[in-house]
Design a protein around this nucleic acid. Structure first.
Lengths: 285, 285
DNA sequence: GGCTTTGGTGTAATTTAATTACATCAAATC
DNA sequence: GATTTGATGTAATTAAATTACACCAAAGCC
C-alpha cells in the first residue's frame, strides 16, 4: 500500500497532533516532499518530534525516509482520491482536482466493469446488421463519438440525439439490429421507451447505464460503470468520460474480433483524411 | 523528463568521477535512495562533494532533493505505462490496457497543461458575448459536449460540426465573441480557415489543439495537451478524453468565477430535468 | 475526590548528514 | 615549459533530523 493511502486509512488511529500533520500533508503533498521537518512542523503547528513520530508510525525510518515514500506515492500517478472542487479553489487547485477525480473515476470504472458483458457486447456488435447509438443531453455527445468510431468500421451505423428520430429508428429496427442506449442515470423516460420499442421489434439493446435503473431493465445487455460522480457542479463529468472509454473498449474489441485484414481497412479510412489536412512536413514549426 | 533517463542521456557530459557516480546509481538505484551521500560517495569511490555536484548538474537542489527525484523515477516505471493493445489480447487484456493508457494520457496531460493559459481562457469565456464551439470528425463530439456544458450556464452558445455553418458563424462573429476550435492534430485545413476568419472579425479564438500546429498559429490562446496518442487503432482515443477533461476544467473555472448566486441557477437547470425522468423513489430497484 | 499512571507533546541537546570554502592537482592551451 | 582552467578532495561549517528528557493532560485506581 502506498503511504498516501496509508495515511488516509489510519487517520482514525492518529492523535490530535498527528492528525494535524496528516491534514497538512494530504493538502499539499507536493510541498511536503520539498520541505524540511521544521517547515512541515510549523505548517501543521506542531513540534518537530511529533512529525518524526508521525513518520515512524507509518513504518518509515524517519522523516527523510518518509519523504522518499511520499515522493513515490505521488509519482505513482495520482493520489487517486476523488477530491471535490471547492468555492475558493484557484486554477491550479481545480485543474488538479478535476484531472484527479476523473482518473479516480476511471480507476473505479475499471474495477467495476464486467469483462464478460463487454465480451458479449462485442459479440453482438460484430454480428450486427445495423448499429444505432442513442443518447440525450450529455450522453448525446457520447453517442456521437461512438458513431464516429464505428462508422470507420464500414458498418451501417446511425446516431440520433432527437427523440422523434430515435423513436422512428427504433420502430424500424428488426432482428439482427443492435441499439445502444447511453444514459448515466438510466432514468430518462424517453430513452427507456426507445429501448422498449427496439426490443419489441426484436433488436438487441445494449445499455450503457447504471445497473438497476429503469433503462437497464429494458435492455438485453447492460454495461454498468458505477462511477462515483461529483455532482457538486450539477454536471455529469467523470461518468461521461468513463462511458467514452467504454466505447473505446467496445470499438477496440470490435476491430480485434474482425481480424488483421479488417484493420487494413481502418488505415485506409485514416489515410483518406490526409487530403483535408496540412502535411506534417509542409508545416515546419 | 525523469531523472533516471536524464542520467542516461547526459552521460557524455559527465566528468570521470561523475560518471563513476552515475554508474553506481544506475546499477543500484533502489539502494541509492536509501543511502546517505557518504555511503554513495564510498560506493562510487569519489568524495562527497563530487556526489553533490553530480546532483546539482541534474538540476536538483542537492543530494536529498536528488533522491526524491530518483524515488519518483523509480516509482513511475511501472504503474501506468501506455501499454499498447496487441493482436491476440483477450477482453481482460484490452480492457485493462485501454483504461490504463487513458489514465496515463490524463496524467501526462495534467502535467503538461499550462495553468496560466487555462486561467486566461476562463477569463475570456466569462466575458464572452457569445461562445462558439467548432470541431470536425472525432472532435465534433467534444464540441457538442462543450456546448452541452456551457449551455447550462445560460450563456449564448452555439456548436457546429458542419463546415459551412461554421464558416458562416465565424464570418458573423465580432468583438467580444469567443470561438473555441477543437482539433487534436491542429492540421485540419477547414478548421484553420475558420479560426483565421473568426480572428479577422475580431473574435477571440481559443484553440484546444497541439502546440506548434497550423491551427495553433491562428489562435489567440492555445490550450495544448500533448497527449501521447496510441495510433495503433487509427483512432484518436486518449487525446479526445483529455480534451473533454479540459472542457470540464474550463466549465468549472467558469462556474467558480461566476460566484455562488450563479450556481443556484445551475441547480435550477438540473431540477428542470426532473420532469423527464423516473424519480429515484418511484423506481425501487 | 484525590492519587497514580499512561500516553502525548514540546524543549533542548545531540548526533548525523549535507554543503561550502578552499586547497590541490591534472590536463589543456598558449 | 608556463599558465590557466576545470575537476576533485579535505576540512570546516551549516543545516537537518533525531534523541533524551521534562511536562502536562486525561484516564484509571484507590
Amino acid at each position: 500500500m502506498n503511504v498516501l493511502e496509508k495515511i488516509v486509512n489510519s487517520v482514525n488511529s492518529f492523535s490530535k497532533s498527528e492528525r494535524k500533520v496528516a491534514d497538512v500533508i494530504l493538502a499539499n503533498p507536493q510541498t511536503t516532499i520539498h520541505s524540511s521537518i521544521a517547515a512541515l512542523a510549523k505548517m501543521a503547528d506542531v513540534s518537530e518530534p511529533t512529525v518524526n513520530r508521525f513518520c515512524r508510525r507509518l513504518d518509515t525510518k524517519g522523516f527523510p525516509d518518509f519523504k522518499l515514500h511520499l515522493a513515490q506515492s505521488l509519482a505513482n500517478g495520482t493520489p487517486y482520491v476523488n477530491r471535490h472542487v471547492e468555492e475558493d479553489d484557484g486554477p491550479e487547485a481545480y485543474t488538479a482536482k478535476i484531472f484527479e477525480s476523473t482518473m479516480a473515476a476511471l480507476d473505479a470504472a475499471r474495477q467495476n466493469v464486467d469483462i464478460q458483458t463487454i465480451n458479449r457486447a462485442v459479440d453482438v456488435l460484430t454480428q450486427a446488421k445495423k448499429i444505432s447509438f442513442f443518447g440525450l443531453g450529455a450522453s448525446a455527445s457520447v453517442a456521437h463519438d461512438a458513431q464516429n468510431k464505428f462508422f470507420r468500421f464500414n458498418v451501417p451505423v446511425v446516431c440520433f440525439d432527437d427523440i422523434v428520430m430515435q423513436r422512428m429508428s427504433a420502430i424500424n429496427s428488426s432482428e439482427g439490429d443492435v441499439v445502444v442506449c447511453i444514459s448515466h442515470t438510466g432514468r430518462t423516460k424517453n430513452l427507456c421507451d426507445i429501448a422498449a420499442i427496439a426490443r419489441e421489434n426484436d433488436a438487441t439493446v445494449i445499455g450503457i447505464t447504471a445497473y438497476d435503473s429503469p433503462l437497464a431493465k429494458e435492455c438485453t445487455l447492460v454495461l454498468s460503470l458505477d462511477v462515483p460522480e461529483d455532482t457538486d457542479m450539477y454536471m455529469p463529468m467523470a461518468s461521461r468520460v468513463a462511458q467514452l472509454v467504454l466505447i473505446d473498449i467496445l470499438a477496440t474489441g470490435f476491430t480485434l474480433r474482425r481480424g488483421t485484414k479488417f484493420r487494413e481497412n481502418l488505415k485506409k479510412v485514416k489515410d483518406s483524411l490526409r487530403g483535408s489536412r496540412f502535411d506534417k512536413k509542409d508545416f515546419a514549426g
